[in-house]
Design a protein around this nucleic acid. Structure first.
Length: 649
RNA sequence: GCCGGAGUAGCUCAGGGGUAGAGCGCAUCCUUGGUAAGGAUGAGGUCACGAGUUCAAUUCUCGUCUUCGGCUCCA
């Protein structure tokens, strides 16, 4: 007698060992059709594997992450089988699932390469193999036998993987003519896979280490229904339309020039306007929180960065120092603002009563990024951080940290960023050589972050090894239109730089003490933030932020003068307004300006000119009726006020 | 930096060993209009750059640069 407990705590009894599939069948035919895998006492299993003892189980379908994982994992095997049929002798690395599908890292036989054209053929072969509904069969194998098997196949990648496994835990999965080393679980047979799209070919270092050889990685995605694949592809097309590189070009926000250099963005007038709005907004928030603006130069003596440790850490792989012709002094394009700010802290003696000192700067920094890394505005070589450094007493760290989190949330609220991940980035305990400073200070800094997040009730994930070399971080990550995750806001607790720069304050005991630094940038960089903002809004920025808030559209050239007058009046009231006085019909002007994503279109003709009114049209919504010009000015000012109400006043 | 694509007008793209095309945009003119594309005419390209093969290269080969998708990296 086997007792199976389901998630609702109901218990089903079976006479003998039973499979997950049999349990599903006993519940409903529909479930038996949809189920993809099963967890048995918390471990995900194949549906066809016998459960021989009492167990708690949960059945997974496509709607569960575990179900999709099983589906895609089997799809990776199916792809491997198809690849092996075209390229016998291919060596297989690893073939895991990712958020949107799966990949397999392979090493093609000597002299063979794979191209996009091959992908189509591999897809066809996969479909053919899927239609055969070959059973996917699990078997256990001893370490020696497994090693012998893959030695015979000359697959040293798998041999390396096997060598790290424990005997007695090694399993193989077979389908048709293909057998792979795999922990599983897998679908019962290949017939579940109905729709297949191989997305791209990429290079990937074996085991993610750039010192290893590069394998060929093939990304793919599969679905249980063709319709789901079609919808997914449409969704990808839609996402591409939001790509900040495309929208930024269309809206004339920024550009790049080969003559200026790669990764060096040029902000066009409208993009600069957008940035200015963001900066003004943050400055107002920061003023409320007691920050003071400072300004520092774009270069600094190399010794500044030797003191901070940045030069030792990054100097070789960075823009090289600028030298003075006569004296041979070395200056570095600043990659960080903190050393400059430390020097400002040291400009005069500080008392414990002065702390915390909150020093803010929109500081432009330059970092050498490898050419293959550059990506639109999200990864560039010259960018502006909304940087600030808080110098505080040890007893103030947690409170200051929490206030920074508040500022970040004000920004996220102002821009309706709801889907973020808060990540606590700690040191890698196995690689102490990557970090500077004492373990005691690291412990204190990490504890401060963890406690501050707990006290704020923040939902966080913790990543080891993601800390900066001088201190742990709290990072806020946001996804772009295509689901790639980018780090925006960051807060870091640092006990190290104050020591290196010998920062001090005089305590109430009349003795010298060391302050603690908090580095923080809520936007992160203006460039990356604007990029993600563009993708979030598809370029339809909130009214308070958008570079052009209203456009006046004269019905004919006869009303151009009136249109200009309206625009002047609105601009005096700080409403960013332009005029479209092209020799075009009104329908055309409406269409063009709707597509330019300007929130308000103001149509003016004979009637409006006589009555000193505008006919208001809201982007995407249509005609809103007629208003006096000053009424409209008040109306739009109100809308802006509402959007920002309570955020900084 | 590494693996694999791509680079033709301001933009989106077609073409192809005999020195180039479309749509949109732009300019000029006609039209002077009432809520998502009015009409005519015209200007714009060393086909990314540099070598090589060829009678002839934008097209083929190689290199460089830039860019795209990944990998690695990211103070």
């Amino acid at each position: 007698m086997i007792k199976i407990t389901l998630p609702d705590n109901s218990v089903r009894e079976f006479d003998a060992a039973v499979t997950g599939m049999e349990v599903a069948e006993s519940i409903s035919p529909r479930l038996a059709k949809d189920v993809l895998s099963v967890s048995v006492d918390g471990v995900v299993w194949d549906l066809t594997r016998k459960i021989e003892h009492d167990a708690k189980i949960k059945l997974y379908t496509w709607d569960d992450r575990e179900g999709k994982d099983t589906f895609w994992h089997s799809s990776a095997h199916l792809m491997a089988e198809a690849i092996e049929s075209f390229f016998p002798g291919t060596k297989f690395g690893i073939g895991p699932t990712v958020d949107t599908g799966f990949y397999y890292d392979i090493d093609l036989p000597e002299g063979k390469t794979i191209s996009d054209k091959d992908l189509v053929n591999i897809e066809k072969k996969m479909l053919e193999l899927a239609r055969q509904k070959n059973d996917i069969v699990r078997s256990e194998i001893s370490k020696n036998d497994a090693m012998a098997m893959f030695t015979q196949k000359n697959d040293e990648l798998k041999q390396e993987l096997i060598s790290e496994l424990e005997d007695g835990t090694i399993t193989l999965y077979n389908q048709g003519n293909f057998t792979d080393l795999c922990r599983g679980p897998h679908l019962p047979n290949t017939g579940y896979i109905k729709a297949i799209k191989l997305m791209s070919i990429a290079g990937a270092y074996w085991r993610g280490d750039e010192h290893n050889r590069m394998l060929t990685r093939i990304y793919g995605v599969t679905f249980p229904k063709q319709k789901m694949l079609d919808e997914y592809l449409v969704m990808l097309e839609e996402a591409k339309k939001r790509d900040h590189r495309k929208v930024g070009k269309e809206m004339q926000l920024f550009t790049f020039s080969e003559n200026v250099g790669q990764g060096l963005p040029l902000w066009l007038p409208k993009g600069a306007q957008l940035r200015e709005q963001l900066e003004t907004f943050l400055k107002k928030v920061q003023k409320k929180y007691g920050y003071e603006q400072v300004i520092t130069p774009h270069i600094g003596d190399v010794k500044l960065y030797k003191t901070s440790g940045h030069f030792q850490k990054y100097g070789k792989d960075s823009f090289q120092p600028i030298t003075t012709p006569a004296e041979g002094e070395e200056y570095l394009l600043k990659p960080m603002n903190c050393p400059h700010h430390c020097e400002i802290y040291k400009a005069w003696p500080r008392s414990y009563k002065d702390l915390p000192v909150r020093m803010a700067e929109f500081g432009t920094v330059y970092r050498y990024e490898m050419s293959g890394e550059l990506h639109g505005l999200t990864r560039v070589r010259g960018f502006t951080q909304d940087d600030a450094h808080l110098f505080c007493r040890p007893d103030q760290v947690k409170d200051e940290f929490k206030k920074v989190i508040d500022i970040i949330f004000i920004i996220f609220k102002a821009l309706s960023f709801e889907n973020y991940t808060a990540q606590i980035s700690l040191r890698d305990p196995e690689k102490p050589e990557k970090y500077i400073g004492s373990p005691e200070n690291w412990d204190k800094a990490e504890r401060a972050i963890i406690e501050a997040c707990e006290e704020k009730g923040l939902n966080t994930v913790t990543e080891l090894g993601e800390a900066a070399f001088y201190g742990p971080k709290l990072d806020f990550m946001i996804k772009d239109a295509l689901g790639r995750s980018w780090q925006l806001g960051t807060v870091q607790v640092d006990y190290n730089l104050p020591e290196r720069f010998e920062l001090e304050y005089i305590g109430s005991d009349d003795k010298r003490h060391r302050p603690v630094m908090i580095h923080r940038a809520p936007f992160g960089s203006m460039e990356r933030f604007v990029a993600v903002l563009i993708e979030h809004t598809a370029g339809k920025f909130p009214l308070w932020l958008t570079p052009e808030q209203a456009v006046v559209l004269p019905i004919s050239e006869k009303y151009n003068d009136y249109a200009k007058k309206v625009s002047e009046v609105l601009n005096i009231s700080d409403i960013r307004t332009v005029v479209d006085d092209r020799n075009e019909k009104i329908g055309r002007k409406i269409r063009d300006n709707e597509l330019k994503r300007i929130p308000y279109l103001l149509i003016v003709g004979e009637k409006e000119a006589e009555e000193e009114t505008v006919s208001v049209r809201r982007q995407g919504e249509g005609d809103k009726g007629t208003m006096k010009v000053n009424e409209f000015a008040e109306f739009i000012a109100n809308e802006v006020r509402e959007q920002l109400s309570g955020l900084y006043n």
